[in-house]
Amino acid sequence: MKTPQKTIGMRLLGGHLWVVYTFLYIPILVLMGLSFNDIGMPTAWGGFSTKWYGVLLENDAVLNAAKNTLIVATVSTFLATLVGTMLAIGIESRGRKTSSALEALLFAPMIIPDIVLAIALLSFFTLLDFTLGLHSIILSHVVFNIAFVSAVVRTRLKNFDFSILEASIDLGASEFTTFRRVTLPVIFPGVLAGGLLAFTLSVDEFIIAFFTAGAGSSSTTLPMQIYSMIRFGVTPEINAMATIVMLVSFTLVFISQRINKGSSVS
């Protein structure tokens, strides 16, 4: 039986949770709401309109940046998913405790301040006289994406019974067949979730892209475009773009949640 005291305590806790949710969602909802405001300014409501989306779609710089972001995110996700998954399998299949040095190495890209990684990569590319552009952004994004993909896939491999691989070989399958018919199908939800996470991160990443993109606007990515628009001031176009970008991110997160659902029960 619950004491009345406890109930009051629980109510307070519950109330606090909803305050936190309000804090988390108000800014997002305000932006989304404003994007449909005809005047475009938060000062007053001028009626529902989608005209800012129209303005946005006519902005060539934005469209070009969106295209660049799509290229960077797709390629870096593909590379990071491939390499990160292999890394995760390699580490987890050894069947012994991972050394803390290796854990630290895999954790570092997730927590190192992006400004530090950004200037480090800029120094590196400059020292090598490497031409900067979309390709250098891709190479850089793969760094932190490897860490995230391998972390997600490793979580999935924690409950993985590696003797099923030996069972497959024992039953006459080759290493390759075993990978194709056993390893991959079993870890696939983790790989896909890791890939979607990598894609989301790459789409959103600003500073590293900013430093490794090189001069000129040809390799501007969407976050770089958003940054320069924000620096310019509050404009209604940003609200529309913010809404679209957030909806895309949320959709990806929803999909990855769906995929990992049921399989992450442990």
Partner: peptide, 14 residues
């Protein structure tokens, strides 16, 4: 999971 710049920008608006 939404864009960091946009989340920060929202506070300028607020």
């Amino acid at each position: 999971w939404s864009n960091y710049l946009i989340r920060t920008y929202a506070w300028i608006v607020l």
